[in-house]
Design a protein around this nucleic acid. Structure first.
Lengths: 344, 344
DNA sequence: ACAATTATTTCAAACGTTTGAAATGAGTTT
DNA sequence: AAACTCATTTCAAACGTTTGAAATAATTGT
């Protein structure tokens, strides 16, 4: 009988179960949902039949009826950056514990694709959205739509710097950079170079401020010669490094870098030119990449951004917003501390 | 007026548009779907109003009516392995081009989680499923459900070795390993060690066969001393390497490894013990990790598995199955060639 | 002016659930 | 035996769409 059903591909619905059991659809529904008004024996019969016939409730129908999907949407630039994949882990963990499923969508740092993803998730009537915006997102109409429909949005990591009226969960990148700089100072460094990231990214400045403040608080003189900026392009990184190490009078003995891949390019270059002090230069970057253990001249430490924790904070906030435990207009800003991991 | 609507949070539906426009719901629906029987002017009015009021069709309702979701499910072990994230890229690309959206779900190599993911996707009535099974998947009931409901499933990369009756898309790991071994032979190596992966993984043997056949075809003598197996545990890799390099009479000059992270552990170990021939040993592993450029003693080449292409082949096959261009029972097996990438 | 044609709009049912209200049935009480 | 409980089941409407058939309106030909 099961086979028949499957052969002609009529899906098993409540109605089908009801006919088989000669009872009404509502009894079947209530039995499966364990309503107290349904007789125990009836429940048993229904549940057994449902199991035997592999009844699978149709989520579309339920969503339609319940006016919610129990789906959380995530939009992020890409899945190749371990920061994001690790953050997803934190989101998923807590989401599934709370009965939510997660749809992940990549923007590939393309605004058009981000808009498409947003529209798709809106049509799917996600109950909430977690988003790390693309590099090029200036206009937020496609994301504002959600709030306009009462669907809460939490921005994480990459977020609209100027626009204060939104929920944010961010790595405390100031604190991370401060800590790293302080660590190097404590190890006796007085000439600490800072290699910053793209100036458009909003936390570039926070990181720089962490560096500056650590110097100041520890009476280490600041020199603008020791600061340079790059992006993720190798050539630019090399020319930035050339500048930093240009003045023999003011030669850095340590380096704090915006992100590990950039740092690796820098280290590689310094070694390739056989820089005289290469062995003594101590480096730290944001990231804590697992590959560090394979490097011959590894950074002395990493600034671990705790992406899982960032993700977890984002989903926790989002669920509170969904449950209206926090008013959607009561905009929150959560900072997640970084941790300095010293490599051994 | 829009604001009112949004304030009391009544979502904009076809019915709402119809009332505003004083026409029937079906006219509105047909106008939005550009039915030829609807008057041009009416279409304009409807579309304008829909735009102004930010009408967003409810996908659940559409899915329910159309009995399909235009969603493809993907289940894979995790997102930290770049093989998988790169393969997703291939899937997404082609899927969105064909009007499908993608839901990604991680099993974390846990059977229980894989079952949950499968059930979730089944309830969501995905139109098709692409899956790389977990390490521990022996029983396939949770995946067979899909085919029983007429939903096609394509297994990719990790797949049930014994069970022939399923659709598969695989990297041609035999060819990849053959090519790598041949490359080393052509460079004059006669003592090529082979470091294999976990024996449970089904393509471990294919790779070994690639190695063996390349030796045979080129009249290089095979020695079982030159073969060892490990898993992803560093300790086991080191003891495997110790065995491979134990006999001074039979010292390898080259090494083919199952996967790059394993190879990196091996290289690291060999250097750490200051192996006398370290500089001459040429290594190749599966993967083509982007970090290779930062290593001091990088592999001479990588076996690029073309994950994007594997993903693309999987989704193409799946869509053909969904469209019934290929019969669901007509099980396909597609092999995607690897490419040897020589590092420069 | 009237039928015949064509263009356009509306009706109504369906998709698979959920759920409060109404109906039924079986005991209990008087 | 009528009235009242209480447990259990069923009814019926609703969620937001789509779509073939039926209805209506507009246009044409005679």
């Amino acid at each position: 009988m099961r086979l028949e059903k499957m052969m002609n591909n009529t899906p098993v619905t409540l109605k089908f179960l009801a006919e088989k059991l000669k009872m009404s659809v509502s009894t079947v529904s209530k039995a499966l949902n364990n309503y107290p008004t349904i007789n125990e024996y009836t429940k048993q019969r229904v549940q057994e039949m449902a199991r035997d016939l592999h009844f699978t409730p149709n989520k579309s129908a339920i969503n339609l009826k319940e006016k919610r999907s129990r789906i959380i949407g995530i939009i992020l630039p890409n899945l190749l950056d371990h920061f994001f994949t690790r953050s997803i882990y934190g989101v998923e963990q807590f989401a599934t514990q709370n009965g939510y499923n997660v749809i992940i969508s990549q923007s590939h740092d393309d605004l058009e694709k981000e808009i498409q993803s947003a529209n798709m998730l809106l049509r799917s009537r996600v109950d909430g959205l977690i988003v790390a915006i693309s590099k090029h997102t200036q206009d937020f109409a496609h994301l504002d739509q959600f709030e306009n429909m009462g669907i809460p949005v939490v921005y994480y990591t990459r977020n609209p710097s100027f626009n204060l009226s939104c929920h944010k969960v961010l790595g405390n990148t100031f604190q991370g950079c401060y800590q790293a700089t302080k660590f190097l100072i404590d190890r006796g460094h007085q000439k600490i170079a800072y290699l910053g990231g793209p100036k458009m990214i909003n936390f570039t400045h926070d990181r720089f401020n962490g560096y500056i403040n650590a110097l100041k608080d520890n009476q280490v003189p600041f020199s603008s010669e020791l600061v340079a900026y790059t992006d993720f392009d190798k050539e630019n990184t090399i020319s930035a490094i050339k500048n930093l190490f240009a003045n023999p009078e003011n030669m850095p003995t340590a380096l704090v870098a915006f992100k590990e891949p950039i740092l690796f390019d820098a280290i590689k270059y310094l070694r390739s030119i056989n820089h005289p002090n290469f062995g003594e230069i101590e480096c730290i970057g944001f990231g804590n990449t697992s590959f560090i253990s394979y490097l011959d001249s590894p950074p002395i430490a990493s600034i671990e951004e705790n992406p899982e924790s960032v993700g977890e904070n984002a989903i926790k906030l989002l669920i509170q917003l969904i449950n209206k435990e926090i008013d959607i207009q009561n905009y929150q800003k959560i900072m997640v501390d970084c941790k300095l991991v010293v490599h051994g």
